[in-house]
Every structure is written in C-alpha cells, then in structure tokens.
C-alpha cells in the first residue's frame, strides 16, 4: 500500500505540474484569447470585454488558483471558443480516442505475440529475420504516412473500411476505427516485439526452463508454459510507457482519418487559442496515463507471485 500512496502522490504532483506548465506557457506566449476568438476585425473594446468575461484580465495567481479550485470540483471551465463546458466537450471526444487507443493496443499485441513466438522458436531463422524486418519497418515508417497508405491501398479500392469520418452506429464506428488502430498498432508493435523477444530468449536460457527440458518437455510447451509467464513483466512495463506514445499516435491518426476524438480536437483548439480546452485535454491525458501505469503495476503484481506475497 505504501507504493500505491507514493504513486498517487506522484500522480497528483505530475498533474499539478502539467497544469502549471501549460498555464505558464499560455501567459508567457502573450497571446490574446479575446483577439484570437473574435479575429482581427473586432474592435478593441469588444476584445477587452470578452477578455474580461473570460477572466483572463485578472491577476495571474488568481486565475491559476481559480483553475485549480475548479479542478477540485470537477470543473474545467468553459471553452473560450464555443462557451460550452470543457468537461462536456471532452466527454464527447474521449470515447473515440479511448476506443482507438484500446483497439490499437489489442491489435499490437495480436501482432506481437505470434510474431515473437515464431521468432524465438528458432532465433536467427527465417521467421526471426522477417520479424526483424517488420521491427525495422515499423520503427521508421511515419504513422501519418502509413495511415494514408492504408487509405490508399485498402479503404479506397475495397471500401471495406471508411477512409475517414465517424458514423453514429456502433458497428460503423468499429469499422471506422480499424484502419486508424492498425496504423497506431504498427508503431507500437516493434518495440513490444523487441522487448518480448529478448525477455523470452533470456527466460529460455534459464535453469527453470532447462530443468523441465530435462524432464522431457517439448520446445513449444517450454516456450509457452514455462518461459513466457516469466517474460511478461518487461512487456507490461513497456505497455505503461507506450500509453503516452499511443496518445501521440492517436492525435496523428485522428487527423489523418478525421476522427472526432481528443487529438483532432486538440489541434483545432490550439489554433483557436482555446486554453481551457487545451489545458483540459492535457490533464485528461495525464490522468489516463497515470491510470494505465497503475494498471500495469497491478498486472505485474498479478503475474509474479513473488511480488504478490511481498505486499
């Protein structure tokens, strides 16, 4: 429980740090939200009035404290641009991004496990070489480009999946998410494969695999029942780190595939200087990452009886 308290404290600090950083940069940027919203044609009085209404002409410390106080009540303020509550806007966008990220992880793991299994069955063999080729390609191919490529070679010719947009019906939504999720997954899988491969091979060389081999257990069973459960911890820690990358990947593909999620919103909000929304988005993502990394910790504990009983 001590570890949990420490993690929570860290998470709170992280999130406060983020708000402070984003806030500070807004101030330092010297941008004028009223002007950004109303445009260059508006009169200075109108801009000032709007700035007053938005509260951005108040002393900085007061603004920040107001923001944090609102946060404690679950209130992220109102969007500068549309005037709607930030929480409502984000609640509309978050499910798209969340589904996209979850689906991306599922697909990446579906790629990672069989590929790595074939690779470690015969290290240096054909499957290993092919998987290494995939790792190299997946690392260097930019995800926005891959997304476009998938639109070009799958979405447009076959029509199986839409090239963009997000319908209202659940099955259509799922189809709309497939190609974007594959795009993000291809970016995630290479590091997963590298991590799992080296952990798996290390486990295969360990005495607790040699011993059952001496009892006549075959290679496939040694790989899956004996070595694999001991190779998952590095992968689980990696997944926690990858949550952040996946968020970046989601921002990119949401723009390529025109998905109405947090990422596409972030770019639009940023161009509107809609600080409360940008701030809220950053915070939400920080929160998600903290959540994912705690989940990864929990999973690691579940996988290893030594950690379980150390509690």
């Amino acid at each position: 429980m001590k570890g949990f308290a420490k993690k929570t404290g860290q998470a709170v600090l992280l999130m406060l740090g983020c708000t402070l950083l984003v806030f500070a940069i807004q101030v330092l940027s010297g941008r004028d939200p009223g002007r950004a919203i109303l445009g260059t044609q508006a009169t200075q009085t109108a801009v000032d009035a709007l700035n007053h209404r938005l509260g951005v002409d108040q002393p900085l410390l007061g603004q920040y404290l107001d923001f944090v106080a609102g946060l404690a009540r679950g209130d992220l303020g109102l969007s500068f641009y549309s005037g709607a509550p930030v929480t409502e806007i984000l609640a509309g966008r978050a499910p798209v991004t969340a589904s996209l990220i979850v689906l991306s992880f599922v697909i990446s793991l579906v790629i990672t496990f069989p590929t790595t299994l074939l690779a470690v069955r015969n290290p240096g063999g054909p499957a290993d070489v092919i998987s290494r080729g995939f790792v190299l390609a997946g690392t260097v191919i930019p995800s926005f480009w891959l997304g476009i490529l998938l639109i070009l070679v799958i979405a447009l010719p076959t029509g199986l999946f839409p090239a963009g947009g997000y319908p209202d019906d659940p099955s259509g939504q799922l189809r709309a998410l497939v190609l974007p999720a594959i795009t993000v997954a291809v970016g995630l899988a290479p590091v997963q494969i590298r991590t799992l491969r080296s952990a798996w091979l290390r486990a295969m060389r360990s005495p607790y695999v040699e011993a059952p081999r001496s009892r006549g257990v075959g290679t496939t069973r040694l790989l899956i029942s004996h070595a694999l459960p001991n190779s998952l911890n590095p992968l689980v820690s990696l997944l926690a780190v990858q949550a952040g990358w996946a968020a970046f990947g989601a921002v990119i593909v949401e723009n390529t595939f025109r998905l109405p999620g947090i990422g596409q919103g972030l770019i639009v909000d940023a161009s509107h200087s809609d600080f409360p929304l940008v701030n809220g988005t950053t915070l939400l993502l920080a929160f998600v990452v903290v959540l994912v990394s705690s989940a990864a910790d929990g999973l690691a504990r579940l996988l290893d009886p030594r950690l379980r009983s150390a509690q």
């Binding site: 983020c18 984003v22 952040g244 990358w245 968020a247 970046f248 940023a270 940008v278 990452v289 990394s293």
Partner: peptide
C-alpha cells in the same frame, strides 16, 4: 518519460 510528452509538446 511517463507523460504523453509529445501531446504536451503539441500543446
């Protein structure tokens, strides 16, 4: 490292 840093960068 833990934070979705590039999202912050975008912001």
């Amino acid at each position: 490292m833990a934070f979705p840093t590039y999202v912050l960068v975008i912001a």
